[in-house]
Design a protein around this nucleic acid. Structure first.
Lengths: 214, 214, 214, 214
DNA sequence: GATGAATGAGCGTTCATTCAT
DNA sequence: GATGAATGAACGCTCATTCAT
C-alpha cells in the first residue's frame, strides 16, 4: 500500500476530480482541467488511473470504502436496532452534507449510465445494502422491527428515502442542514406516517370527525 | 406515403429515442441511430425537435404530463388518504414497470447532470411532489396522518422509496413484478418498520439489556 | 421571351437574392430566406433556377447584360475618345453607386472562387473589357491616346482603378458619392500622376531645384 | 522525430493551407486535407490556429507583414518618388508572380465575404495603402506628382491597377511574366494614357469634329 | 516518474435539393 | 405551376489518450 510521494499525487488528482466533476459534470469535465487543478501534467493522471472513467470509479470506491468502514465503526456504539438505524441515517446525511461537491458527484455524476450504475450497485453499494440489511434482520429477529416486512423492500425504502434527501439538498439552492433530517426520516421510517389513533381504512366522514383530533 | 407533416413521426421519434437512450445512454446515443430506428432521415428529427437535448427533455415532458394526469384521475376514485397513497405508489410503480426502457431513461439517463436534474426538478417533478404533498396535507388535516411530521420530508421519503424500488428493478437482471412492491412500500410508509410490541424510543438501558440487544 | 406571370416571380427571386447575398454573403445566404423574401416557396426557386449557384450566375448575367447595353448606348453620344472614357467611368461608378446591395454582390460575393471568377471573366466581363478595349484602340488610332502603351494593360488598369473605387466604397462606412470619383479617375488615367513640370528620372537634388518649373 | 512544439509545423500548415485554399477555395477546402498535406494530424492544426478561419487570417497577416517590410526596405534605395512607385509596383507584382497559389488566395479566396474584406482592409491593407499614400504625398510635396489630384483616389487607382494585373494573371491560363507589367503600369500611371500631342481636355466641338471623332 | 505535444476517431447539425401532393 | 416536408451527405472541431523525451 505504500506508494510514498505518489499517494500524494493520487489524492490530489482525486480531490481535483471531485471538484471538476461536480462543477462541470462527468462528460463535460476535461481531463486536462483536472490535471491543471491537481497541478500535474495531463499524462500523469494516466500513471495513476487507467482512464477518465476509471477516475470516476476509483473515486467512488475510495470514498465508499471509507464511508462503510466509518459506518461500521459507529454502529458498534449503538445499543439498539433503532439506534443503529439512527446512526446509519445520521452518518449517511452527515457524510454528504459535509462535502457538497462530493455529494453532487455521488447523487448525480455517478449515475451516468446503466453501465456505471450496475457496476456500483454490484460493488460497494451492495456492501452498504448488506450493512443495512443486517441491521434490519437483527431488528426482525429481536422483535424490534416488524418481521412480516420483506427485508429488501425495507432496506431499499430506507436507502431511497435518505438518497432522496441528499438529492433534494444537492439540487436545492438553499444550504440547509442536511444532517437535521436524520431524525424525522428515522422517526417516519420506524413509526410510519399514519396516525395511530385513526383507522387506516376508509372511515365514514362522520366517524372521522367523531374520532376527533388527537 | 403522405408528405403531410406530423403523421406519427414525432411519436415514432420519441419511441425510438426511448429505446436508444435506454440501451446506449444519452451521451453515447447517436442521433443517426434514433433516426434509423424511427425510420426517418437524420434531418427529420430536427423538424420536430430542436436538438438531441430537446429530444430528451421533450420525452420527459410528454411522459410526465401524461403520468401526472393519469395519477390525478385515479386519485379521484380513492376515498381515503391511505387509499390515495396506495394509488400513487401503485401508479408510479406500474407506469415504470410497464416499460423498462422508459424506466431506464427516467431512472438513469435523465439524471446525467445537475443541469438536467435541476431542469426536471423545477418542472413536472415539482408538480408531482405537489400532488403527493397535497395528499399528505389532506391526511394531516383529516387526522389520518401524523401531523407532527414535516410534510416535505414525508413527501421526499415516499418518493425516494418508490424511486429506489424502480432503480433497483431497472438495474436488476431479474424481471420481477415491480407493481407488487406497492403494497409493502405503502404498508411500511404508513405503519412504519418498528414492531408495535416494542417501544420506538430508546429503551432504558436496563430494558435494552433485558431484551438482549446486540 | 414572354414568360407572363413567371417573369414577375423570376425577377422577385433575383431581387431577393441580391439583398440576401449582399447581407449574408453567398455561402451564408439561405435559399429558404431568399424564397421567403421573394414570397415564394423554397421549391419554386428551382423552377426558375437550377441551383443556388445558378442563381448567383444568372444574377450576374442579367445585370451585366443590361449594364453593357446601357454603356454602349451612352457611348453613342460621346464625341471623343476622352469623352467615351469619361462615359464609361461615370456609368460604371453610377451603376454601382446606385445600388449598394448590388455593388456588394458584384464586388465581393461574385468573387467566391476561381471557378466563378473564371466563368465571369470568360463571359460578360470579357465583353466589358472588349468594349473598353475598342475605345482604347480607337484612341490609339486617332492619336488621342499614346499608341505605345500595351492595350490590354491600359484596359486592365482602367478597370482595376474603377473596380477599386467601388470596392473601397462598398467597404467604407461612409456613404459618399461614388459617381464623383469618375472625373479624377479619368483625369489621372489620361494625364497621369506625374507633374509635367518635373523630370521623371532622378534629378540631383540641386539640379532638381535648378531645373525649376517646366 | 522531436516532440518539441513548433518545429516547422506552423509553417508547414500555412504552406499546405495556401495550396489547398488556392486549389479548392476557402469554403470547399477541407481542414483534414490541409492536415494531410502538412503531414500532421487534424487536431494538430488547432494547436497552432484557432480555427479554419484563423488559418486564413493568419496566412494573410504573415504574408502581408513580410510583404510590407520588404517593400519598406526596398523603398530606402529608391531616390525619387517615381523610382519609389516603380519599386512598389515591381515588388507587388513580383511577390504575387512568384507564387501563383498565394496569389490565388490573395486575389480570390481572401475576398469571399465582406466580413473578411473589412477585416483585411482594416489591418495590413490599411498599412499598405498608407505606405503608398506616403509616397504619393512626398511626390506632391516635392513637385514630382500633380498636387491637385486627390491623394486617396491616386492610391486606390494605383493599387486597383496593380491588383487587376494580378487578378487577370491569376485567372489567365497563360503563365506570362507578371513582373514585366510593372513598367507599363507605372508609365501609364505617371504619364497618363493620353497622347501628349492631343489636348486632354474636351476639345472645342469644332476641333473635335475636325479630328474626326467617332 | 513526469511531461505535454501530438494524435485522429468521432458526431450533432445544417441546408440545398427533391418530389408527392 | 406551386408547395414545403422530407431527405441525407457532409465536416469543423474536441479531447481522451499516447509516447518520445
Amino acid at each position: 500500500m505504500a506508494r510514498r510521494r505518489s499517494d500524494d499525487k493520487r489524492e490530489r488528482i482525486l480531490q481535483a476530480a471531485i471538484k471538476v466533476f461536480a462543477r462541470k459534470g462527468y462528460f463535460a469535465a476535461r481531463v486536462s482541467e483536472i490535471a491543471r487543478k491537481a497541478d500535474v501534467a495531463d499524462g500523469t493522471i494516466y500513471l495513476y488511473f487507467e482512464s477518465k472513467e476509471d477516475l470516476l470509479v476509483s473515486l467512488f470506491d475510495t470514498v465508499m470504502k471509507e464511508h462503510i468502514e466509518q459506518a461500521r465503526a459507529e454502529l458498534l456504539s449503538a445499543p439498539t436496532v433503532h439506534d443503529k438505524l439512527r446512526v446509519i441515517a445520521l452518518h449517511h446525511l452527515r457524510a454528504m452534507g459535509q462535502n457538497r461537491d462530493l455529494a453532487i458527484v455521488f447523487q448525480v455524476e455517478l449515475r451516468q449510465s446503466t453501465k456505471f450504475m450496475e457496476r456500483f450497485t454490484a460493488s460497494w453499494l451492495q456492501d452498504y445494502f448488506a450493512l443495512m440489511g443486517a441491521v434490519i434482520e437483527e431488528g426482525q429477529n429481536d422483535g424490534s422491527l416488524r418481521p412480516e416486512l420483506p427485508r429488501k423492500v425495507v432496506v431499499k425504502a430506507l436507502f431511497g428515502a435518505l438518497d432522496e434527501m441528499v438529492t433534494s439538498w444537492v439540487l436545492s439552492r438553499r444550504d440547509y442542514d442536511l444532517e437535521k433530517l436524520a431524525a424525522p426520516v428515522v422517526d417516519l421510517f420506524l413509526k410510519g406516517a399514519a396516525s395511530t389513533r385513526v383507522a387506516t381504512r376508509r372511515p365514514a366522514p362522520a366517524a372521522a370527525a367523531a374520532q376527533g383530533a388527537r
